[in-house]
Each structure stands twice: as structure tokens, then as C-alpha cells.
Write a protein that binds this DNA or RNA. Structure first.
Lengths: 251, 251
DNA sequence: CCGACTTTGTGCACACGTTCACAAGCGGTA
DNA sequence: TACCGCTTGTGAACGTGTGCACAAAGTCGG
């Protein structure tokens, strides 16, 4: 990387700035994998494993060993050549990078089937995401505790989120309500949103949205089913010009 | 595109082969977006919109207009220059490519909180994914209908999946059970799996797995929170060397 | 203390996906 | 019919992410 240093060194030293910038430059895809490595490593630690090589870890995480090493190199050099990585050390460094040293208060909006499931997940598998607030429009639900937390009315989003310092909002409402809920969360200062509603949310630049769309996942799988069927058809009967709607033919 | 025709013309013509191969070469990322376009287009069709330009559609789908056109070009040229796209035509072609002209029978394994939510989703938002089988280990659940479908015992996976021609399996079990359930689904001929368990599944090459991992999503968001906090800190107080654990400081 | 062996960290080449920019093509208009 | 403006479709440049292959750096045994 060519570190072309400008002349504008006001208060930060070039070295520190470069370090920060490198930390910031972790590819999104690598961040997702780091979370997976973290889970695998946590499991290993519980099983009493103290050291691990890139080869072992990569197999357990289902990725290429080289890719794993590159991913880990983004967060620093914490391995020992000829030996491998210390599990504890790696865990703590990944946690630090992912910001898991602080707790992130989570609010779930929309206490339907999915909302229930999310609330009952309770603190999310293992580490640091306490659900501290639940919201719904349905007055009948308000006050009833789900997974130990009482449901608030949706109009209270702003006040409650500010009070409980919610940093992550989860939208599990029906599609029509999603954008409105999103707007309210944003105005309550929530900057990270996990959206389960099949809707494209419009948000300001400073807000991060991740979406989980079951229908899309299904359709991607469907695409692969169709592709498979096509291949099977071409292999077994040459090409009959029927195109993609041909029957599935087992060889 | 240079169509360098080889000499090996056995049963398929080079043109048809090339066509098939192009269809197969749709980037994964584009497939995911096509599913989103499809949803937006369906909504438009319901609202009585009959024609749409790449600019309009791209805005509604939250992507770049050029990217949208390229995505659509993967499935063929179905637009009219100077005018735009016919909504109906586009819908039917995307459905065809995604394999939505056939129904895909879905089985959900693990009827806990999440499994309930999935079963009650009932046929998945709108189109073509009927849930036709539910499984759980818990004998108390067996026979009880959830979302209109009675729960079967997990040992019946193979028989039931074959009988009902399940093409997509959804794993919503606790982590320790996931791999075993996955193996059973695979041996029942299921080639596409949607995995909600925070586990890396080992499957043969001919099986497609997609995973939805809430903890990972949360941790990615957490990473962005931390990154933001860092930036805010550096901006407001130069650099104090505290590193990534510094407090969030509002300017 | 030294040499052999193991495993990390990374430079480099490649492949994939994204974005730009513009020619090709179509409908409307005179 | 011929022109004009608009929008598609796509070649080409660019950037990002992946995978290989090897030097650097450590441990272990003699």
C-alpha cells in the first residue's frame, strides 16, 4: 500500500492514522467470516483446545486456509510461525475488532411469530446482544412480557430507545409498516438496523442496514434447483429445445 | 462475445449450448438481486403499473441503474429502447429463470420458536414455496398441526420427504442436531438446504446450502457500530491512543 | 548451537463483480 | 418518411476479493 502522506498532520501522527485506516479497511466479506471463526474458536475453547493451526481452523469454518490467514492478517499478526494460533488470544482480538467488548442493546419491533422467536432467543447465542426493548402496534400485546421483557407500544420507540441506549434495531413487522418503523428508529438515534421485512428501506447515509430476506433465500435455492434440473436434462437427452421448463429427468 | 465453436458437436448445436451456458453463468449476486426486482415488479403490477424504466426500477430496488440493466441482460433482452420494460413480461421471465414456474415443496425441521414462525409464514410471501412437511424430535409435538400441517417425527424424514417430493429443506434446530438432520435430508434426496443453525454444515458437492445466521448479522452490525465510534472519537479528540475501546463521543 | 521441519504472513496474479460511457435501436412528431 | 430525443444493452475500465506459492520466522531434535 502506497502511504502517500499529505502535509495535513494536525493532531494525529501518520503511524496511528495508518493503523486506524487499516483497521477500517477490513473487507465486509472478511468481517462476516471473522464472526464465523469466532464462533468456531469459542467452541474449541470450551472443549479445552488451546492452540489451533490455520489448516484446522479453516476446515472447521468451511473456508480456504489461505483465505483464513489473510482474514486474520487484517486484524494483526497474532499467530506463531511453525505453531499456529493461541485460541484465547485469537478470540479476544476478534471480539475487540468486532466491537463485542461492549454490550449492544437490541430492540425488536413487531412481536409476531418472528418477533417472538427473536425475543425468546434471549441475548442471542452466547455473547453480548441483550434484547432490552420490544415494540408492537397491537394494544393487546403491550405490557405482556415476552422472553422476560414487557412489550411497549410502537409510539414509544423514540423515548424508550433513547433511555435504554439501543444501538441495534430489528424490524420484524409486516412489510407495509417497515419503512415507518425504520424512520422512527433512525430518529431515535439507532444507527444499525437488521431488517426482516421484504422491503427496501430508505435510510440516511449514516445508518447501516442489513437485511435478511427469507423469500429471496428461497428463490436463490429455487434457481439452483432449476439449474440442476436443466443440467440433468441436457445430460440425459442431449438438447430437445424445451428450454428451462423441461421436466426433471433422473439419469 | 466470441463464439469459438469447437469440433465436438454430438447432439447439441453450438448455439443452444452457448445459450444454456450463458443462462448458467448468471452471477450469484445478480440472482439475489433478480429476486428483489421480482418482488418490486410484482408490487408494481398489483398497483396497475404496466411499464417501467431501468431508472425507476433501480431506485425502487435500491441499486444502481447500470447494474440493474446488466442484471436483466443476463436473462435476455426484454426491454424496449426509448421506452423501458413491460412489467408483466419482466415478471414472467424472472420467474422462469428463478425456477418459480414449478412449486418447490419445503420441509421445516425443528419446530421451536423459529420453526413455528417459519411454518406459520404459510407458503412464504406470495409465491410458490408451500411448506408440506414439519419435523421435530419432541414426541409431544408429533401429530399436532402447526400452520395447518401436522408435525412428523424426525425419524420419518426420509420417507416423508421422498413421498412429498421435498426439494428444499429448512433446518431450524438447535446447533448440535443440525449436522445429523442435514445428513438425513441429504439421504432423502434433498439438494437444497436453508440453514438457520449457527453451524458449518458438511455436505456433498451436489447439495446447495445457504445459511442465515442471526448472530453473525448482529456481529457485523456491531463491527460497524465500533467503527463509527472510532471515527467519532478520532474526529472529536484527535487521537488519544485509546484504540477501539474508546467511548462514543458525540461531537 | 545448528539444521530440518512446520506454519504463518503476504506479494502477486487472477477472477469476479461493479461502474462508466456510449452506440444501437425504438417511438413520437412533423 | 426522416429526424429527434429517450432508454436499453453492452464493451471496456476499474476495484475488490480470492487463491497460490513462497519467503520469513518460529519450534524441536540432535
Amino acid at each position: 500500500m502506497v502511504s502517500q502522506r499529505g502535509e495535513g498532520e494536525t493532531t494525529t501522527t501518520p503511524a496511528e492514522a495508518a493503523d486506524k485506516e487499516r483497521a477500517r479497511a477490513i473487507p465486509e466479506a472478511a468481517v462476516a467470516r471473522l464472526a464465523v471463526y469466532l464462533r468456531v474458536l469459542s467452541g474449541m475453547a470450551e472443549s479445552g483446545v488451546t492452540a489451533v493451526s490455520s489448516e484446522e481452523l479453516s476446515q472447521a469454518a468451511g473456508v480456504n486456509a489461505a483465505k483464513l490467514r489473510k482474514d486474520l492478517s487484517y486484524i494483526g499478526s497474532y499467530g506463531t510461525r511453525g505453531v499456529g494460533y493461541d485460541v484465547e488470544v485469537l478470540v479476544s482480538h476478534i471480539e475487540r475488532i468486532l466491537g463485542l467488548t461492549r454490550n449492544h442493546s437490541v430492540a425488536v419491533v413487531g412481536i409476531g411469530n418472528l418477533g417472538h422467536a427473536l425475543a425468546n432467543y434471549g441475548g442471542f447465542p452466547g455473547r453480548g446482544f441483550p434484547v432490552t426493548a420490544l415494540f408492537d402496534v397491537d394494544a393487546d400485546l403491550v405490557g405482556i412480557p415476552v422472553g422476560g421483557i414487557p412489550v411497549n407500544h410502537i409510539d414509544e420507540i423514540t423515548a424508550v430507545c433513547l433511555e435504554r441506549e439501543v444501538s441495534i434495531g430489528v424490524i420484524a413487522t409486516p412489510p407495509p409498516a417497515a419503512q415507518s418503523v425504520c424512520d422512527r428508529l433512525v430518529s431515535a438515534g439507532v444507527q444499525c438496523i437488521l431488517n426482516f421485512a421484504p422491503v427496501v428501506l430508505q435510510v440516511p447515509d449514516n445508518v447501516e442496514v442489513r437485511k435478511v430476506d427469507l423469500a429471496v433465500e428461497m428463490q436463490i435455492l429455487s434457481f439452483h434447483v432449476a439449474r440442476r434440473a436443466d443440467e440433468a436434462a441436457s445430460v440425459s437427452v442431449g438438447n430437445n429445445g424445451l428450454g428451462v421448463d423441461g421436466m426433471v429427468i433422473r439419469p
